[in-house]
């Protein structure tokens, strides 16, 4: 029995020995996988801002995993104050299945509650040997592509929808030509990885493929990380508007008594300094000043939203990604 208490005391001592627990306020942010560095930086900035404003010290706790899994955890009782996701559908589910937020959540903050956004771009190898400039270069017989699987990853879905958006602009109402283009495009994909990071590894570490198709933020990060010109970022003429939606979770902020704090945490993402920080992580932002500062980094292109391309997420999922949907039909055709 003595040992039991000793063990218990030791564990309790180690748990309580964390200096971080000394903060006046706490906030839990659930986020997607690759946003760790981003929010680690933002939390420091926001902590300062909050202390200036209220005098209270703040500790923001972070939880990171795939955003669908995070949504599921929140519905099952993970008492997060805010959700910062990379897929609109995963926040919708918090309303539809969890009843934790109101249906009009997207209208509560500017720009569809999406403080930053990105788009789908290409990463090609040194000197761009296959001369890839736009979507129509990707369907050439000699080009091998690497992208995440649209069946399992939001990232892959965005790329598929971006290609569809391009084809719609190119062929107008000619559905047969659109289908043919998409089928040829999918035919050139050498590896469908299950997620974004996996696709990056396939392209960089295993050296497979001529072009990697993923978020612009990710390809810019990669191009920055390697020596000059080792990899080049290609921005197509048309691409998909990938929103990064955020929301506070009404039921939980009431329980946790963090409503004002959670709202400020998200609103502050729209401030000029925060927008500059976000741009530093290679996300596109709405603030005009920051936009001007980064206009070389983020090339102009035509961005199409999910409503433009497929008439909303619900319709897109049913028409394109459901079992037996357009994606399955096009892949079977090959």
């Amino acid at each position: 029995m003595k040992q039991l208490f000793k063990g218990f005391a030791l564990g309790a001592a180690l748990l309580s020995a964390q200096p971080a627990l000394a903060a006046d306020r706490e906030l839990l942010n659930t986020s997607y996988d690759i946003a760790r560095e981003l929010f680690a930086a933002y939390n420091v900035e926001f902590g300062k801002h909050w202390q200036e404003k209220t005098g209270e010290t703040l500790e923001v706790k972070q939880s990171h995993a795939g955003s669908s899994r995070q949504a599921q955890a929140i519905i099952q009782g993970l008492r997060a104050d805010v959700a910062t996701f990379n897929q609109v559908t995963d926040i919708d589910i918090l309303h539809a299945r969890g009843g934790l937020i109101p249906e009009n959540w997207a209208e509560r903050l500017p720009n569809n509650s999406s403080p930053y956004y990105s788009t789908m771009a290409f990463l090609v190898r040194k000197d761009n040997p296959k001369n890839i400039q736009n979507w129509d270069d990707l369907v050439r017989e000699d080009v091998a592509l690497v992208m995440p699987n649209p069946k399992t990853s939001g990232n892959g879905r965005y790329t598929y929808l971006a290609a569809l958006g391009y084809a719609q602009d190119e062929f107008g109402d000619d559905q047969a030509s659109i289908d043919e283009f998409l089928s040829a495009f999918l035919g050139q994909v050498r590896v469908f990885d299950s997620g974004g990071r996996g696709a990056t590894t396939t392209f960089i570490e295993r050296g497979i493929g001529d072009a990697l198709l993923t978020f612009e933020s990710e390809v810019l990060n990669l191009a920055d990380r390697f020596e000059d010109g080792e990899y080049l970022v290609i921005t197509p003429s048309v691409s998909f508007l990938a929103e990064f939606p955020v929301t506070w979770i009404d039921d939980y902020v009431k329980q946790n008594d963090t409503e004002a704090l959670a709202k400020e945490y998200l609103t502050h993402l729209y401030s000029e300094d925060s927008q500059r920080l976000l741009a530093g992580f290679n996300y596109r932002v709405h603030n005009e000043t920051v936009k001007q500062e980064n206009k070389d980094r983020f090339r102009d292109l035509k961005l199409k939203s999910i409503d433009d391309i497929a008439g909303g997420w619900e319709k897109a999922m049913a028409d394109h990604f459901a079992s037996g949907g357009k994606l399955d039909q096009l892949q079977r055709r090959r």
Partner: peptide, 13 residues
């Protein structure tokens, strides 16, 4: 450190 503490705490219970 926190992860170590939590892991030992869980084992101790």
């Amino acid at each position: 450190l926190h992860a170590i503490g939590l892991t030992l705490f869980v084992a101790a219970l």
